[in-house]
Design a protein around this nucleic acid. Sequence first.
DNA 1: ATCGAAAAGTGAACACTGTCCACAAATGCC
DNA 2: GGCATTTGTGGACAGTGTTCACTTTTCGAT
Lengths: 213, 213
Amino acid sequence: MKKNVSLEKRKTFRHGDLRNALVTAGLEMARAGGPNAVILREATRQAGVAPNAAYRHFAGQAELLDAVRSACLSRVAAAIEDEMKKHKAGRNPQAFARKSLHAVGMGYLGFAMREPGMFRTAFSVPPPVHSPDPANTASMGLNPFQLLSLALDRMQESGLLNRKDRKGAEYLAWSTVHGLALLALEGPLHKMPREMVLALGERLVVMVERGLS
Amino acid sequence: MKKNVSLEKRKTFRHGDLRNALVTAGLEMARAGGPNAVILREATRQAGVAPNAAYRHFAGQAELLDAVRSACLSRVAAAIEDEMKKHKAGRNPQAFARKSLHAVGMGYLGFAMREPGMFRTAFSVPPPVHSPDPANTASMGLNPFQLLSLALDRMQESGLLNRKDRKGAEYLAWSTVHGLALLALEGPLHKMPREMVLALGERLVVMVERGLS
DNA sequence: ATCGAAAAGTGAACACTGTCCACAAATGCC
DNA sequence: GGCATTTGTGGACAGTGTTCACTTTTCGAT
């Protein structure tokens, strides 16, 4: 649909939506080859525009990459939300809390296995820390970090986690799944089959549950 | 300063040790800027040699990077060994096992904080999995993965870990510290002060200990 | 409605990268 | 001593990010 934009030479001198076109092209490159495959000139080529035109919308390639990364982060958040929405709050808050934490971890890992390029792009270079940047968020309006915090809050509220252990628990839980994801994607475990990675992920989440408190 | 080597033009037409010189230069670039800062032409420049000369020793930039990564991995292993050697086996095997595992984790994290560029380079792109490649090893002849296995073996032998849970425990333990390291180095936590990262690391290792079994 | 400033695109250039080719010099081996 | 093999040179090419001067379009104030 919107690819035609790149093929048929546009009639208007102005492109009209160049910034979005560039980000979209960059996103596709990130999907295919990770962060350092997002090439500025190639994006302009796909948008049917001269290379320098990009500089009217981005200060440079780094800024384009930033925009692409935001888009990738948003996808990660969406994947986590999808996983969380599979379980509704029932009459057992502790079971719900466990399921929530589990969903965050496995949603994260599942996306990493499903979309390696986007995942690697999302967490490659310095993104601002807990930015409430609306571009990073999915429908619930929370980024991956905040979704994790939500799950941990449920753990605490349901009595599975005391206040002492709650502090900084985000970082501990996040580290585990993030580490496994990167070891499997671009680390020494990159040959391990995905289902085995996900199985390890299950054990990992259990370990976190047990080890946090 | 150190680059006199590059400044004084060599008398011999042959360089004599070009391969090593290139790896050394590459290692310094990796230290300063991570994996994609190791530039082939720059290495030849520092070695005082024409760019193409590198192709007599490496098939291309990727292969040079591979050699540099091996060197980095070796440093990681050395850091872990240093940490492990701080504790000798006493009369309490369980305490020794715990200290060993702790040392592996903190040696790993400590190196990551101390030498971010080298660490990121060591684990950036696909290295062969558990290669007994002697280039990746330090004085004990073990790479980081094997050092971790050793520590976990001690856990099992001393009865802290049963056979069921021992299987694949390397990957679970490794994931945690690796994840924290990368989140802190090139992820959303890159602004967190190092001592706080190390403090989190302590909690993380404890969590692993408790959560594994 | 006009006209002028600002926005958005073009074209040509530069420095830098990795890589390949044909050739020259040094080494070592018989 | 002569000769093949290694090792380095010089010159070239495509691809990248980036900048500068210029043109075209749009839009808002008069």
